[in-house]
């Protein structure tokens, strides 16, 4: 089910949580709503669910306008951050609970409900836990139950609100692969909210990055990382983060510290905010910098130095010898450097 948002706005009194958002969420794909806390991503998700009403604009599921439709009429599955399982029911009862709301010709008997519950339980791999109570499950298992409960009625859209944030680091890695697998197997259009860029980048088909209620960019993970549309997108994605420094371009030459610089093409003369990804730096000869700090990460190391008076981070291969206080020589891969308008932050 393709979801289309047109000028979607939500105001809470004087605060605008979501500001004229227009976007299309592709059918059958996993879309991540990403952004810092308070950026309106959860509000947007709850407007999709119908639990939060819309101040302005409209929401379409396929061709159908659901802007004022009640949550239960939208055929969605919703998974909350805290899972919201019913503690007094077994796993099977929890999963089958939404099916008990069907009336008339859709009414299901106990056997049908059991079969439906078993089918999704198999999908999320909890078929051995059907008789347990939520309390007897680990966080990851509870998460699986919550997803199963959301999927049991075969929703058109699956909405996940920070589904992995209550899990420890290792489990989070495992569960995000699981969310991806479940989404691929069930082929359900899925929207999930997260503030974790790594989570969003690793499993989504497309990322919607938001800030202060406004969509900054919508693109697949690779595209949004390699081709950020503005300084915020560039700074939000990437770990360690991108470094910004003031740079002047004159005659195709970028002048940096102490006569060091590099040449660029297609950038007009003027002052820019230059964003350099840490991985843009490689051992070489062009830049001579004094190492201030080295952070060993195992597979690589983060080397910090000053350039133009600004702290710059570089990720270098772990085998490269960089010691604090020494001067090292580096090259800059200019395809990982981005020029932004220093006032507006827009990429040039």
């Amino acid at each position: 089910m393709e979801i289309t948002l047109k000028n979607l706005t939500k105001k809470f009194d004087s605060v605008t949580a979501v500001d004229h958002v227009s976007l299309t969420i592709p059918d059958g794909k996993l879309t991540g709503l990403l952004g810092p806390s308070g950026c309106g991503k959860s509000t947007l998700l709850y407007m999709l669910s119908g639990l939060t009403n819309v101040t302005e604009g409209s929401i379409f599921f396929g061709d159908k306008d659901v802007t004022v439709e009640a949550p239960d009429k939208r055929n969605i599955g919703l998974v909350f951050q805290n899972y919201s399982l019913y503690p007094h029911m077994t796993v099977e009862e929890n999963i089958a609970f939404p099916l008990g709301n069907r009336h008339g010709k859709d009414r299901m008997n106990a056997r049908q409900k059991h079969e439906a519950a078993c089918r999704v339980a198999e999908l999320v791999q909890i078929q051995d836990l059907m008789n347990r109570k939520p309390k007897q499950l680990s966080g990851g298992q509870q998460q699986r139950v919550a997803i199963a409960r959301a999927l049991v009625k075969q929703p058109d859209v699956l909405l996940l609100d920070e589904p992995l944030s209550n899990l420890d680091a290792r489990l989070r890695m495992e569960m995000r692969q699981e969310v991806r697998r479940i989404q691929l197997e069930s082929k359900v259009t899925t929207v999930f909210v997260t503030h974790d860029q790594e989570e969003a980048m690793s499993i989504t088909d497309t990322i919607v990055l938001m800030k202060k209620g406004v969509v900054q960019q919508q693109a697949p993970a690779r595209e949004i990382y390699m081709n950020p549309s503005n300084a915020f997108v560039a700074s939000f994605l990437g770990n360690p983060p991108i470094s910004f420094l003031d740079a002047k371009v004159a005659g195709g030459q970028v002048a940096l510290d102490a006569g060091q610089g590099f040449s660029v093409s297609g950038v007009a003369d003027g002052a820019y905010s230059l964003g350099i990804r840490p991985e843009a730096w490689v051992p070489g000869h062009a830049f001579h910098v004094k190492v201030e700090h080295v952070e060993m990460r195992g597979q690589d190391q983060i080397v910090t130095f000053k350039l133009n008076g600004v702290q710059v981070r570089a990720t270098l291969d772990a085998e490269y010898q960089a010691n604090v206080g020494e001067t090292i020589s580096l090259d800059l891969r200019t395809n990982r450097c981005y020029f932004f308008n220093p006032e507006t932050g827009v990429r040039v």
Binding site: P71, D72, L78, F80, P98
Partner: peptide, 18 residues
């Protein structure tokens, strides 16, 4: 009670009575 329980039930079309 966590409000999400109620919300989650509403999304599933649970009546208030149920």
């Amino acid at each position: 009670m966590p409000p999400s329980l109620f919300k989650s039930a509403k999304v599933d079309g649970t009546s208030n009575w149920r």
